[in-house]
Simulated assay, not measured.
Amino acid sequence: MTPRVVAVHSHASHTFSKPTRESITLLEGLGVEGDAHCGATVQHRSRVAADPSQPNLRQVHLIPEELFDELRTSGHDVAPGQLGENITTRGVDVLALPVGARLRFGDAVVTITGLRNPCQQINGFQSGLLKQLVRTDDEGRVVRLAGVMGIVSRGGPVVAGGTIEVELPPTPHFPLTRV
């Protein structure tokens, strides 16, 4: 299966879910045009409160649609955009990508910076959902499944149905950690 964009989302306000759009425009070094998290420095409210001068490593949020398939088996019905992502993907294991992997959406490029670390707000959306998105594996390691974050390395439009090309960084590859 060719990796593709299932849906794109943005919202000008800091809301939990984001409405689906026909397309979004990525702005180099900033994020999604018109989205509340767009900016060169952090836009997430708790991070702004801690240090508003931090670089924004969370300009674009991506979630694989396959996660929604898995969540349905545990009784959680989640649709694209409802967890606040900007791009819903299918056919690429974004959680397994290394730091610095680049995803090409036509001319636009997102460089992956790390894993989304979900907060308690997710349980307000659906009770018990946080336990499904942050788990402990058999070796006692925390596993985060709520998608990945990235920065815009090249601007351009991203449309639902568009293809995704994955470019890995030079070795050695480093696993994603929370950002």
Rank of each mutant, 00 (worst) to 15 (best):
V109P: 11
L83R: 02
T73N: 12
G100A: 01
T88G: 02
G100H: 04
Q82I: 04
G81R: 01
V78L: 02
N86K: 07
L71S: 05
A96K: 14
L103E: 15
I112G: 10
V94G: 10
E70V: 15
V92L: 09
V109S: 06
P98Q: 01
R90P: 14
V99Q: 14
V109E: 08
V94W: 07
G75W: 07
G81I: 05
P64Q: 11
T89D: 09
V99I: 13
V110S: 01
V110M: 03
E65T: 12
E66Q: 14
A108S: 12
V94Q: 05
R72V: 14
I112W: 04
L67G: 03
G106T: 13
H61E: 07
L67M: 13
E66D: 10
E66Y: 01
G81D: 00
F105L: 13
L83C: 02
G75N: 04
L103W: 15
Q82E: 15
L67H: 02
T89R: 11
L71R: 05
H61L: 15
V94T: 13
P98M: 02
F105Y: 13
H61F: 11
R72C: 08
D93Y: 07
G91T: 11
V109F: 14
G75K: 06
P80R: 01
T73A: 14
V109A: 05
D77Q: 04
I87Q: 01
N86W: 03
L97S: 11
N86I: 11
D93T: 03
A108M: 12
R90V: 10
D93E: 12
H76S: 05
V92P: 13
Q59N: 12
V60W: 02
V92S: 04
R104P: 10
E70L: 14
G81M: 02
V99W: 09
P98D: 01
N86L: 10
I63M: 09
I63V: 15
I87L: 03
A101F: 07
G84I: 02
A96H: 12
V60S: 03
T88A: 04
V99S: 08
D69R: 11
D77T: 05
L97M: 12
D107E: 15
G100W: 04
G106Y: 13
L95P: 06
E85C: 01
A96L: 13
T111D: 12
G84W: 00
T88I: 05
H76E: 08
L97C: 13
S74T: 13
G91F: 11
S74E: 14
I63P: 04
L71F: 01
R102F: 09
V99N: 08
V109Q: 05
H61R: 12
D69C: 05
G81S: 04
V78T: 00
S74Y: 04
D93Q: 10
G75E: 05
L67Q: 07
H61K: 11
F68K: 01
H76Y: 08
E66I: 05
G106W: 12
E70F: 03
S74I: 08
G75V: 05
H76T: 06
L83W: 03
F105K: 12
V92Y: 06
D77F: 00
G91S: 06
H76N: 02
E70C: 09
D69Q: 09
V78K: 00
A79V: 06
H76F: 15
H76W: 05
V78C: 00
I112F: 09
L83Y: 02
N86A: 10
F105E: 13
R72D: 14
V60Q: 06
E66A: 13
R90I: 08
